[in-house]
Design a protein around this nucleic acid. Structure first.
Length: 297
DNA sequence: ACTGCCGGGTT
DNA sequence: AACCCGGCAGT
């Protein structure tokens, strides 16, 4: 960990939150060039809209409103993945982040500060979430689940070629956009998280960042999520079943009856990704020498 | 040698 | 249930 870095982030985030609550903070004063229809809402508008709607506790982002700037979202994913991977280097990897963002999404303006604010704000909220979890004695960290406009996503992907085996880091960096159904499912199913999700959506409307805890023994993953680094014990979908690398269901019965070990997965597991020295970053299963639940096959 | 993780033990 | 690890099998 990096206590001083956390403090800085929290101070920064607190400042942002204060600004948000007292006066409408114009993060992106100009209309957003998404290349998509005529969505020209400023962030100010988006934010104020978000707040008013949040009072009713009902969230309804118009689908057309999701064609919002893609700029802040990549740092989120980068921060949640690469930044974490290279972990101990603290919180100042954001310079590289914004540059690569700029490169990836062809944004002519390097908005370092703005990007940083958004990022820190999210990490702050994440931390708040964890505080309550710590009271449970749980060992939790967390990850941001983000949702990216498909257009900007593919744009970024085209230059990234994530299929390249040389790409370092945990695999699922770029999640496909979640449908409205799956999004509301998060809020609905995970009731205790709904507030956090709303807050994040307010602070980062372009990314619809979802905070979600992740069980170490999660079952089949039907939708891709950003990585990771998150885990929390919760009644998981599939404690009894897992998906092997052929995406076929493997039940305990299947395993034992076969008598043969299931073929080794191809994905890099926590051990290999983080290394022995960062064992505390492994998923719980890996730490217990069980089948990895973070990088499933 | 390294890695993934089953099976079983301990707390 | 959470946690740990010996030991086996795949690479």
């Amino acid at each position: 960990g990096n206590p001083s870095g956390h403090a800085d982030k929290e101070v920064m985030a607190a400042t942002v939150l204060t600004s948000l609550s007292t006066s409408p903070l114009v993060l992106y004063p100009s209309s957003v060039p998404t290349g998509n229809t005529t969505t020209s809402k400023t962030w100010k508008e988006v934010l104020s809209t978000s707040y008013s709607s949040s009072t009713s506790g009902n969230w309804s982002w118009d689908a057309s409103d999701q064609s919002v700037p893609s700029t802040p979202s990549p740092p989120l994913s980068k921060d949640a993945n690469t930044g974490f991977l290279h972990s101990a280097q603290g919180d100042d990897a954001s310079e590289d982040v914004s540059e690569s963002t700029h490169f990836m999404f062809e944004d002519p303006i390097p908005r370092k500060r703005k990007v940083k604010m958004i990022k820190n704000l999210n990490s702050f909220l994440c931390r708040r979430n964890s505080d309550s979890d710590y009271s449970d004695g749980e060992e939790d960290f967390y990850y941001s689940e983000i949702e990216v406009n498909m257009d900007s996503l593919t744009e970024g992907l085209s230059s990234l070629t994530p299929t390249s085996p040389t790409t370092a880091g945990p695999p699922p960096i770029f999640p496909p956009p979640l449908s409205d159904v799956s999004r509301s499912e998060y809020v609905g199913v995970n009731g205790s998280q709904s507030h956090t999700s709303s807050l994040l959506s307010q602070s980062a409307p372009s990314t619809l960042c979802h905070i979600r805890t992740d069980h170490a023994y999660q079952g089949p993953v039907t939708h891709v999520r950003t990585v990771c680094i998150g885990e929390k014990r919760q009644p998981a979908i599939g404690t009894h079943a897992a998906v092997n690398k052929n995406h076929s269901l493997v039940t305990p019965a299947t395993k034992s009856a076969a008598g043969t070990r299931k073929p080794r997965g191809e994905a890099k597991k926590c051990r290999k990704v983080y290394g022995m020295e960062k064992r505390d970053m492994w998923c719980t299963a890996c730490r217990w020498k069980k089948a990895c639940q973070r990088f499933t096959d």
